[in-house]
Design a protein around this nucleic acid. Structure first.
Lengths: 192, 192, 192, 192
DNA sequence: AATGAATGAGAGTTCATTCAT
DNA sequence: TATGAATGAACTCTCATTCAT
């Protein structure tokens, strides 16, 4: 039956919502179950424990994020366009999934095994951006001496940092952010 | 008496240690009290609640971070040197205070009032970097059309992201990171 | 159909195994069902509840024990032989069914109605031994002034106590126990 | 302060009462706390877990039983008197502490470590009776070829078995039991 | 001012039982 | 008839907080 897998997804989605709103520890299994429209015990039919559920939720989110990120990257015609789209996509995702992002970015508050698993997940996303950089170098759009690893960190970190600030500090909506500005800044750097 | 304020600081330092090691929820008041060498009840003479203590600890950490960051910035003779020093300082700080950093960066897992307070704290740090940018523009070291706010986000976010990856994913020590590389990358950008 | 009764027995046997290994509360219906090779819900087609199942399992065990005990008693040619065989049989049974024995001996942890039912079961076993005593008195093998009830208690209690000690404390196998010794001790008493 | 140890004892006494009435698993920490007149959490200030509490309760009971048994044994002028007193003492103790007795006798439903600890406890009681036997042999009151270990098992097992039957099956009070009869039976055995 | 014993609300988790299939 | 997914009551245990000393 597909239903079994579908209900797993339902619970994962409920978990994303509740974890994102209440934080890792603030979230309760009861709340997640209620959100999923099922009984508390049912959660344990699908996930071994709260920790496992959280873990799998982050992995699921990471995969989802990556799945959606890749076409976004491919969509842009040039590097500026690509960075602008990434920033936009990132801001929209962030708006809904702050907690998951924290986890993906830092492995915060997780057991050692969970953290390493998550960093692996995150590194896949980083890899996707690094690949984009390498293609840009090959097409001569980017300077040859750019270090893809460092560049990917600047791109993801810069976009993240700016989006956080504008959304949570200045109260901007995800689409009010100056995506063009951050994209240009990353491309041109600070000096002349 | 100064003693009162000194003991407050003692508790805050103990809180930094315990929160950083055990996470927000994993930390217990009892452990913090033991670390500070006082009784459990005494903590409540100085802080209203665990939440308050956490809040004030993050503010304290933010102020400390800023206090130490400013001379670091002033120390560098040119912009490349400044950015290199910031990255180095950041990595060292991060190594010891992952949890606090998460809070500073995102206001994670905090009440709305706490979050806004923290973002204000964070924006002070951002301001310091923006000021550095503005000075760089005035001295013609940086391009005139650089947006200081975006630049500060790229600098802090990029440094953060890269440090996280190298320290927690690749197991680097804070001083093994290529601080020069990230500084150059931020300055020169990706194109040309 | 006989099949119905046969499946009942299958479940009872599975219950004996699981209850004996995991204890009354440690045993789960799911485990018993798996042991019996059926679905969890099916157990409830044959037994009203876990308590009922446990109850009936003990009765079944009591009957089985008695069914096997009687020929053992009849097998011995004289009283010493009989007691030796009882001790041997008891030790073997005990090795596999500690929990059931506790219940049979004491009605431990059971509801009042269950306990009285079990004690009745146990008294049947005691009766069988008492009958053996009476026969011994009639054949002049035993002293005329022996109280059969007390004697049966001494025999079953003494054998039980000794077997428990040697098997669970000293790690003896059921056949390494000095069955001859305990049989003689019960026959000859302590004085003279 | 003595108060700390005293409260421990209070909790142990409450545990004896509740465990004896409700069984190991039927007993709840909340009920024990209520019985002791304290809060639920307080129990955990004195005992690590429910299992630990149960364990320590059984040890405490074993020690108490032994402490009281020894003077009872010494009190009797001859072996018949001693056995009669033991039976009487046993029946009274049993009336109040059925569960503890089961544990002492068999280590029922306990973890391996707990069981071995308990069997050690029980063997101390057995030792006390064995010592009594040895003294009896030395004073020529008992036959020289009596095996003290087997004899102790017969005495404790026989007394236990008989007391259980009369109290729980026939509804006797502890003092209505024919203690003299069981004592004589154990001494004189069945033959002759 | 400082303490730590006492507390109890609230969490994660288990599992006997039900019931739609 | 047989099933096992779903359930939720009830459990153990944690720990922020209180308050008498």
């Amino acid at each position: 039956m597909v239903a079994k897998e579908e209900k797993r997804i339902e619970i994962l989605k409920a978990a994303i919502k509740v974890f994102s709103e209440a934080g890792i520890e603030g979230a309760t299994i009861e709340e997640i179950a209620k959100e999923a429209g099922i009984g508390k015990g049912t959660v344990y039919e699908y996930f071994e424990s709260k920790n496992t559920l959280f873990q799998e939720m982050v992995c699921y989110s990471g995969k989802r994020f990556l799945e959606e990120l890749v076409p976004v990257i491919e969509q842009g015609d040039n590097m500026l366009e690509k960075l602008r789209l990434i920033s936009q996509f990132y801001a929209r995702f962030l708006k809904n999934h702050l907690d998951i992002f924290n986890s993906l970015m830092t492995g915060y508050s997780l057991s050692e095994t969970m953290r390493s698993q998550l960093l692996k997940e995150m590194s896949v996303i980083s890899q996707a951006v690094e690949d984009m950089i390498r293609v840009g170098i090959q097409t001569l759009e980017l300077r040859a001496n750019v270090n893809p690893e460092i560049a990917a960190a600047c791109i993801l970190g810069g976009i993240h940092s700016y989006a956080i600030k504008k959304i949570f500090s200045d109260g901007y909506g995800p689409d009010e952010i100056d995506h063009e500005g951050i994209a240009k800044a990353l491309l041109t750097g600070l000096i002349w």
